[in-house]
Measured scan of single mutants.
Amino acid sequence: GAPPLPPYSAGGREVTMKKGDILTLLNSTNKDWWKVEVNDRQGFVPAAYVKKLDSGTGKELVLALYDYQEK
């Protein structure tokens, strides 16, 4: 199953993602919540729920390892 959710501390809205989604990583300075862009929406997802990909394009991409439903 998915890892436990860290307390929400990102101070911005969250976004929903599905397992297998490829998201653009915008900011990973917060260790628990990373800012991503998905379907032209920006928001935060739990860092433990995604994995960085080596895209080779200069853009940082992450793979959704679990479904996440915004609150």
Rank of each mutant, 00 (worst) to 15 (best):
A47H: 03
A10S: 15
G43H: 03
K71W: 11
T16R: 07
N30S: 10
L23E: 00
P46G: 01
N27Q: 10
A10L: 12
D54H: 11
G11D: 14
V15H: 05
L63V: 14
T57F: 09
V36G: 00
K18P: 01
S55G: 13
E70Q: 13
L53V: 10
Y49S: 05
L53I: 14
K52Q: 10
A2G: 10
S55K: 09
E60H: 11
G1D: 14
S9K: 14
V50M: 05
E37G: 07
N27V: 06
N27I: 07
L26R: 03
K18A: 07
L26E: 03
L23K: 01
P4S: 09
P7K: 10
V15S: 03
D21L: 04
V50L: 14
Q42F: 08
K31E: 11
Y8L: 10
L61T: 10
G11V: 11
S9C: 12
W34Y: 06
G12F: 10
Q42T: 10
E70C: 08
M17W: 03
L53Y: 08
L23P: 01
V15A: 05
R41H: 12
L61G: 03
G58P: 09
L25T: 01
T16W: 12
P4Y: 05
K35H: 12
V50Y: 00
W34M: 03
P46A: 02
G43K: 02
L53R: 02
M17H: 01
Y49P: 01
L53T: 05
L26M: 06
P7V: 06
L5D: 05
D32H: 13
K51L: 11
V45I: 08
Y68K: 02
P6N: 02
D67E: 05
K52E: 07
N27G: 06
E60W: 09
K35R: 11
L61E: 08
Y8G: 10
T57G: 15
P3G: 05
I22D: 00
P6S: 01
I22G: 00
A2Y: 12
L26G: 01
D32C: 08
L25W: 01
K31A: 12
V62P: 00
G43T: 03
K52P: 09
V15R: 02
D21S: 06
L65H: 03
Y8F: 13
G11Y: 03
L26Y: 03
V15N: 04
G43L: 05
N39D: 15
L23I: 06
E70M: 10
V62N: 01
I22M: 06
Y8V: 13
L5A: 07
V15M: 14
P6L: 01
V36I: 06
L26Q: 03
V38L: 15
E14Y: 14
Y66K: 05
L61S: 07
Y8S: 13
F44C: 07
G20D: 05
E70I: 09
L61Q: 12
V45T: 02
V15P: 02
R41V: 15
D32E: 10
P46T: 01
P4D: 09
Y66A: 04
E14L: 11
A10V: 10
P6E: 02
G43I: 06
D54F: 10
K31C: 07
Q69I: 14
V36L: 03
A2W: 06
G56K: 13
D67M: 03
P6D: 03
Q69N: 15
E60F: 09
L53M: 10
L25P: 00
